[in-house]
Write a protein that binds this DNA or RNA. Structure first.
Lengths: 149, 149
DNA sequence: TTGACTCCCATAAATTCCCATGGTATCCCA
DNA sequence: TGGGATACCATGGGAATTTATGGGAGTCAA
């Protein structure tokens, strides 16, 4: 599980430390890290090799000619398997740096099965947006009651 | 189950003892402790890893573009897996300290499936508020079992 | 040879781990 | 029932480890 938020520095070589807790989570489950363009936001999404495999498999279940399948295939094309250096860093591919407007700071945001990497700016925007929704609509219903079968 | 209230000290390293009864409850069930920003109050909420897993699984079942999913993901970003030292303490993440206005004292309040951590101030406020409601409206009607079909 | 990339070492700061202590509740036995 | 012994709890402090980050040497391709 990927949880928590942390702000890390990106150096001139586009290297950034993946938060230790994320790394630990990957190691524990013997997983490879995949980074790819988020389909929803201007950010990078990180997840496990296994979960990416799940996405790939789901393409087969779609109509091969559908728009959904097309978009998913494009997503694969912008996906990268990451290698760690001995310090726990990865080099962020240029395509992803540009897409998510990253320069020298990255915000890592664990969201359960995967995590986001935002530019500080975009992170602020999205975070305050969530706080606004929370204020207006209140907490999601399923928080308040135990899920029954 | 988490019950009862206790007042513990937070030291300069942001360490605080989790009440023994809470710890015992976790150990007995072989559970990890998760702390996260309450969606309802200015306090920290503590719960089990399993229960958090439940929320995460429910994200996949929601429309990924919905406000509910968005808020839930943000909740994960503000959640932290805790490690105990040999004395039964955890370090409270800075994000949570700030959010709940904690400095040197924490009030632990067991509420069943989870517990709250308040600043003494906020605790007083919420507590007297509940007493006031109780006085004005009388005790709530308890629904002890689900209506059977 | 130059530039880009990978791999590895170095380091300061932060975090984690471990031992120590005083106080309080609990137990046990006379 | 009293009183001492014991166990456990909350807390303090310091040592050891880990983390994030900087920098350089080696490698490969053009």
């Amino acid at each position: 599980m990927f949880l928590s938020t942390s702000h890390n520095k990106i150096d001139l070589k586009s290297r950034v430390s993946i938060p230790a807790s994320f790394r630990l989570n990957l190691e524990k489950n013997n997983e490879q890290l995949i980074l790819f363009k988020s389909l929803q936001f201007k950010c990078i999404e990180g997840t496990t090799y296994s979960r990416m495999q799940m996405y790939i498999n789901s393409i087969d279940e779609l109509d091969a000619l559908s728009d959904e399948a097309f978009v998913l295939r494009m997503m694969m094309a912008d996906s990268f398997e990451m290698k760690f250096d001995t310090g726990g860093r990865v080099v962020i591919p240029e395509i992803l740096m540009n897409f998510s407007k990253l320069t020298d700071k990255a915000v890592f945001m664990g969201i359960g099965e995967s995590f986001y990497i935002w530019s500080p700016n975009e992170y602020e925007n999205q975070y305050s947006k969530s706080q606004k929704i929370l204020k207006e609509k209140g907490p999601p219903k399923l928080i308040l009651k135990k899920k029954s079968d």
